[in-house]
Simulated scan of single mutants.
Amino acid sequence: MAVLVTGGAGYIGSHTVAALLERGESIVVLDNLQQGHKEALLGGKLYVGDLRDADVLDQVFTENQIDSVIHFAANSLVGESMKIPGKYYHNNVYGTLCLLEKMQEYGVGKIVFSSTAATYGEPENVPIDEHDRTLPTNAYGETKLAMEKMMKWFDTAHGIKWISLRYFNAAGAHESGKIGEAHNPETHLIPIVLEAALGKRPHISVFGDDYDTADGTCIRDYIHVSDLADAHILAVDKLRSGAESAVYNLGNGQGFSVNEVIEIARQVTGREIKEVVEPRRAGDPAKLVASSQRARTELGWNPGRNKLEDIIASAWSWHLNNPDGYSK
């Protein structure tokens, strides 16, 4: 039996594929390579195609004995989602519908979903608990919440069990040094800061310095990408054991402001990093930090790479050796 990883050639997907390979799983990857890279795959059987293409899904499910699915494939840029919400509904929500319908058709009853803590919107409590209100402040978070609700009803109607993992910012690189974070364009804070340290951009833009935080800049939770990969695999194991559907937050329990991330990057790299304050971006809450107590208790998740200095150092090593990302 095989695990299907949608979006498996992407950043978090490729690290999850690497972790699955390390434990001897048979892996099938479906990725349209919109943001993914063939070079990021350390193994597995790759199908290049789109979730919305029924013929591609038929091929994947007929040619392989799929036991469970880990679903990463989605557009994920907050700013873009506020400008082109239709793109996010079509790719994220409709794409997930196509996947769930094929899972139903072929009798695949387990899916782990890469969600987002952006489903909570402006939080009621910090750190955020799984029982807190979900009221997204951007279209990206809204589509992820819609995907979760869709899975709930497919479970009710067809018995497809699901685990949704809600988290914020993945960062860092694989310990082998073979894979890391490479987006074009890059929008994530830590790689952008490191690009500035490399001289690939003149400065780092700080979007707003008047938030209700200690230094006025947004606070976010950062998790090493390999710890996230481990959580997705633990969730697969949980479903394989016969567990009911559930939602889990993933976080390190400690938030860092944009200014703090930049300062730690300066210390790690030993380089000057210029910052320029710009207007706020639409849909950005001031402080987002998730509690992962439930995931630790019920999934047995124990992230071991949670020092921000170490996360940034692993990312810096990757960027130094791969300044142009996956150049091919």
Rank of each mutant, 00 (worst) to 15 (best):
261 V>I: 14
261 V>Y: 06
261 V>H: 04
261 V>N: 03
262 I>S: 00
262 I>Q: 01
263 E>V: 00
263 E>P: 01
263 E>M: 08
264 I>F: 05
264 I>W: 05
265 A>L: 03
265 A>K: 00
266 R>M: 03
267 Q>E: 15
267 Q>I: 12
267 Q>V: 11
267 Q>M: 11
267 Q>K: 14
268 V>G: 00
269 T>A: 03
269 T>D: 00
269 T>M: 03
270 G>R: 10
270 G>S: 06
270 G>K: 14
270 G>C: 07
270 G>N: 11
271 R>M: 06
271 R>S: 04
272 E>P: 02
272 E>A: 14
273 I>W: 03
273 I>K: 02
273 I>F: 07
274 K>E: 13
275 E>C: 06
275 E>T: 13
275 E>N: 13
275 E>L: 08
276 V>E: 14
276 V>N: 09
276 V>T: 14
276 V>P: 08
276 V>K: 15
277 V>F: 13
277 V>A: 11
277 V>M: 09
277 V>S: 13
277 V>R: 14
278 E>S: 14
278 E>W: 06
279 P>V: 10
279 P>I: 12
279 P>N: 08
280 R>T: 08
280 R>Q: 05
280 R>N: 07
280 R>I: 11
282 A>K: 10
282 A>P: 12
283 G>C: 03
283 G>E: 04
285 P>H: 09
285 P>G: 07
285 P>Y: 10
286 A>K: 12
286 A>N: 11
286 A>P: 03
286 A>C: 07
287 K>E: 12
287 K>I: 15
287 K>Q: 13
288 L>I: 15
288 L>P: 01
288 L>R: 03
289 V>M: 09
290 A>H: 01
291 S>K: 05
291 S>M: 10
292 S>Q: 02
292 S>N: 07
293 Q>P: 00
293 Q>D: 13
293 Q>R: 12
293 Q>H: 07
